[in-house]
């Protein structure tokens, strides 16, 4: 496990839990959550300033050794996503970008087609592109061709905490993609994160389930343990399932035989 690293955009990650900065009751909870979870990559969003409510600078809560993953949330087209990505990089957030293009506001389903277009443009410009998508193998291959650094399929709609509803489709990505697969969105419990890692996901991205827990710091630790357990199980090659029972103890040599 010590040598088990994940490389994205030339940066090595020893922790496979990516986190987000949304929905915390107080942003001051973020540093403690990062320390407890060991997360080395965290998402942020870019918005117009609100003149009335003075928004805090979220970046001041993120230590330098944690990689920033700005997202393009709010973008409805590839063009808008590209614009947000360029602004984020110019503003000093580094080359990583999570492409999130959403036009369906009821289920927050990602627009796979616009996401692919934005991926092509941004990968050409040298971004480390992590597209958030519905798990579709054909699209995932196109994203790889377009230069995506990873694919990030959703487990369930954003913020629903319903877990791996798309498990069988994610499995196809895991078995066929050459880039890392990061399960993003919908993971509500540590056991679901562990299940994703057992399946062979390279990482998971968890925001809501940690940020809105009563104790985000403790929940961050719980997710870290779960991701590590799931990863260790995957690397150990899990034993097969069987319909009928198979005794674990010898069935011969009882006392009265």
């Amino acid at each position: 496990m010590e040598n088990d690293i994940l490389t994205l955009g030339g940066i090595t990650f020893t922790n496979r839990l990516f986190t987000g900065t949304g929905k915390f009751a107080a942003n001051s909870q973020i540093p403690g959550m990062l320390a407890a979870s060991g997360s080395q990559m965290i998402t942020v969003a870019l918005r117009r300033i609100d003149n009335d409510a003075r928004a805090e600078n979220i970046l001041k809560y993120i230590p330098d050794n944690v990689t920033l993953l700005p997202n393009t949330s709010g973008a409805r087209t590839a063009e808008q996503a590209v614009r947000v990505a360029r602004i984020a990089r110019e503003a000093g957030c580094g080359p990583f970008i999570k492409i999130e293009v959403i036009t369906d506001m009821k289920y927050l389903m990602p627009d796979n087609w616009e996401t692919l277009k934005a991926t092509e443009i941004l990968a050409r410009e040298g971004f480390v592109v992590l597209p958030y998508v519905l798990p579709d193998l054909v699209l995932a291959r196109q994203l790889e061709q377009a230069g995506a650094a990873a694919v990030m399929p959703l487990g369930a709609p954003i913020g629903t905490n319903r877990g791996l509803e798309t498990a069988s489709l994610i499995q196809l990505l895991i078995e066929n993609c050459t880039v890392p697969v990061v399960v993003d969105a919908g993971i509500g419990r540590p056991s679901q994160a562990a299940a994703a890692m057992e399946m062979g996901a390279d990482a998971v991205l968890v925001n809501t389930a940690i940020a809105t827990a009563r104790d985000p710091q403790a929940m961050g630790r719980a997710f870290d343990l779960a991701v590590k357990a799931g990863r260790a199980a995957y690397l150990a090659d899990m034993a097969e399932e069987s319909t009928l029972a198979r005794a674990s103890s010898p069935l011969t040599g009882f006392l009265d035989d």
């Binding site: 929905k23 942020v44 969003a45 870019l46 918005r47 928004a55 970046l59 957030c93």
Partner: peptide, 10 residues
């Protein structure tokens, strides 16, 4: 002009 800042997001 666009006046922007980074905020919490997932």
């Amino acid at each position: 002009l666009e006046l922007l800042s980074f905020v919490g997001g997932g």
